[in-house]
Amino acid sequence: MAHSDDDHRAAADEGCVLALDGERSDIDALHRFLEGASVRFGWNARTQHHLTLACEELLTNIVSYGYPHGGVPRIRLSAAATARGARLVLEDNAVAFDPLGQPDPDLSLDLDSRPIGGLGVYFVKRVIDDVHYERLPSGNRLTMIKFE
């Protein structure tokens, strides 16, 4: 699907911003934040669910793998409306990590062969229409576009 400039450009309305610090309560905060954003921007329940799932999976990855040498996570999530849905930007101060570079899991494996992990980033790719990774001097930035 072709994306118009409007899907990628930050909306004139700067949107909502959530600051997270890698604590377990981040997931509560994430649910509340995206509930509020969905009401504000009129996103439907399915979009809200998909955005929440994608953000939890990415947040888990950042906190689990992003700070091998210690340090305090500083994570910022912003949400804004686009002409056709949602635009989320997730930024961190973690080590360089492009989640999109991971291979997809093999979903055809039986119970015995099935590894315990590896689904999170795959879910992000499934529920978000367009995901774009950038490495910045300050950390990682992932931009997610979701159409309704």
């Binding site: 669910h49 939890e56 888990t60 315990i116 689904l119 879910f123």
Partner: peptide
């Protein structure tokens, strides 16, 4: 109401243990 991959992991561990 909601499950993520961390929750699926619990189900998968339970299914493997049961087997």
């Amino acid at each position: 109401q909601y499950i993520s991959s961390a929750g699926l992991r619990v189900v998968l561990v339970a299914a493997k243990k049961t087997k």
